[in-house]
């Protein structure tokens, strides 16, 4: 590929990835944007006021809580399974690995319906079912990330710590976990995303009584004339993640630096 062709390709791909995000930025600060106008005719914050009035902040809080709950459960499960799959060997490994990846193939709407049907009969609170199902969907990702991280970590590192006098727990806490910290963080972030982004599971189980940020976005987007509030809520859903994505390398680097300095 010529240098020019490469540059054109980069520009086209940048457009492909960036263009769909542009309407969010514009609509979130548009008070009036009549049909046909290329840019809003009146800029302002009414979308933000409306988003707050419609309960946007508590909804974002519920989404964050859901994401944190999923991350808190799916990360340790994935760490244990990842350690077993990378470092161990037993006749259950093959079938377990397949089972842990299975949720990737199962449509969430279908499983959510299956659980919702059972809620009344089994007396399980809807929130527990929502979190449980989302954890099942997050486990393939956390397991995969941590399995890869364990695979490139030498098990003898822990043995070495034991030979220097550390107990098993100390070896885990002072050697393995710090070494795996970046992977644990990445796995937790992916699991958080599963809870934070979910729409269909929360809507199907319990009939949408849990009003998360995606529920509000969907309600706005499926109607007419809600563009500013949809854009504001969407922006609020995206910005923390983008900030995390963009600062992650910096955080990782400073972690690395502080570790080498010690």
């Amino acid at each position: 590929m010529s240098a020019l062709g490469g540059r054109v390709a980069v520009v086209l791909l940048a457009l492909w990835f960036a263009l769909p995000l542009v309407p969010l930025g514009l609509w979130s600060v548009a008070d009036r944007w009549p049909a046909g106008a290329a840019l809003p005719t009146q800029w302002g914050w009414s979308g933000w006021q409306q988003a707050v009035a419609e309960g946007g902040l508590p909804a974002l809080g519920r989404s964050a809580a859901l994401g944190l709950a999923v991350a808190a459960l799916a990360t340790p499960l994935g760490a244990l399974a990842g350690r077993a799959l990378a470092w161990g060997r037993s006749r259950w490994h093959g079938v377990s690995a397949a089972l842990l990846l299975l949720p990737v193939a199962l449509p969430p709407f279908a499983l959510a319906m299956g659980l919702d049907v059972l809620l009344l009969r089994l007396g399980i609170p809807g929130l527990v079912a929502v979190v449980g199902l989302l954890v099942a969907y997050a486990v393939p990702y956390t397991t995969y990330v941590l399995r890869s991280a364990y695979a490139v970590t030498d098990p003898q590192l822990e043995d070495q710590a034991r030979m220097l006098g550390a107990t098993g727990t100390q070896a885990l806490r002072t050697v393995t976990l710090p070494v795996l910290a970046p992977a644990l963080l990445a796995a937790a972030a992916l699991a958080f995303l599963v809870g934070w982004s979910d729409y269909v599971v929360t809507v199907v189980i319990g009939g949408g009584r849990l009003v998360t940020a995606p529920v509000l976005v969907a309600a706005g987007a499926s109607g007419l004339g809600n563009e500013p509030v949809v854009a504001v809520l969407s922006t609020l859903m995206v910005v923390p993640l983008v900030a995390a994505v963009l600062t992650a390398p910096l955080v990782a680097r400073s972690l690395e630096a502080s570790r080498t300095r010690r």
Partner: peptide
């Protein structure tokens, strides 16, 4: 990396 460690994730999923 015994099968024991796989159990929690397998059971939940």
């Amino acid at each position: 990396g015994g099968a024991r460690l796989l159990l929690p994730a397998v059971v939940v999923t």
